[in-house]
């Protein structure tokens, strides 16, 4: 299977005076259309790994390849464009723009790329919002929605540009189990229909087990890499 994400010898050290190494020589790759989960204790380095994968953070040493292209030498604008086109993020704390409505938040990745929004794209955004069950709160400000609604808005936003990769950090971290179940169903559904590659951090073993692959990170190293068939 073709690799969409490939990490080669990633080390990450924080701090200059007092050095703290969070990742130790991690090499891992994710195939196209795969649905993987990353689990691990809090502080194990899994979020750092995901941020490095998403080019938000840079490794101290090592190389990240997205669609076979090394990101080491890309300049800030090319990285920004790569993130916009190829990667959708769903963060634990949603990170919606509070000044904008849910629909506007969902449209933001497209506006960043194209500047304006066509009717088709707006329609697509509405479709995604329906898909995540938000048709009734589309025009609410981000601050006027529940945590679960905000999280689903963030998912619809990650989907909008149809990126080949979606990286999610505890996307259901603060949702009840029914909503959690729904969202995973939704993500799996998208994975199946569009062949989007998913890498999801979760602390919930039941959820992790729904993935095709489970990677466990312990103290900055890959402790377990399990494929389900």
């Amino acid at each position: 299977m073709e690799n969409v994400i490939e990490l080669r010898g990633i080390n990450k050290i924080y701090g200059s005076a007092v050095k703290t190494q969070v990742l130790y020589d991690i090499s891992i790759s994710f195939g196209k259309g795969s649905f993987s989960s990353i689990i691990g204790q809090s502080g194990s380095g899994k979020s750092t790994l995901l941020n490095i994968m998403g080019t938000l953070d840079t490794p101290t040493t090592g190389e990240v390849l997205i669609n076979g292209v090394s990101t080491t030498k890309l300049n800030a604008n090319k990285l920004a464009s790569l993130r916009n086109q190829s990667i959708g993020f769903v963060f634990q704390f949603h990170y919606l723009l509070p000044e904008f409505t849910a629909l506007e938040n969902v449209l933001m990745p497209h506006r960043i790329e194209a500047g304006s929004v066509s009717k088709e794209v707006r329609e697509r955004a509405r479709e995604y919002m329906k898909l995540v069950g938000l048709e009734k709160v589309m025009d609410n400000k981000a601050t006027e929605m529940s945590g679960g609604q905000q999280q689903r808005t963030a998912i619809a936003r990650a989907l909008l540009n149809n990126p080949p990769i979606i990286l999610a950090d505890e996307p259901t971290g603060n949702l009840d189990s029914a909503s959690t179940e729904n969202i995973y169903e939704l993500l799996r559904d998208i994975n199946g229909k569009m062949g989007t590659t998913f890498v999801i951090i979760t602390h919930d073993r039941r959820i992790a087990e729904k993935a095709d692959r489970i990677v466990e990170i312990t103290d900055g190293r890959i402790n377990l890499d399990l494929y389900k068939n």
């Binding site: 916009n84 993020f89 933001m108 990745p109």
Partner: peptide, 9 residues
């Protein structure tokens, strides 16, 4: 957030 979504500097 905007930068994570790919807005240019």
């Amino acid at each position: 957030i905007l930068k994570a979504m790919g807005i240019r500097n």
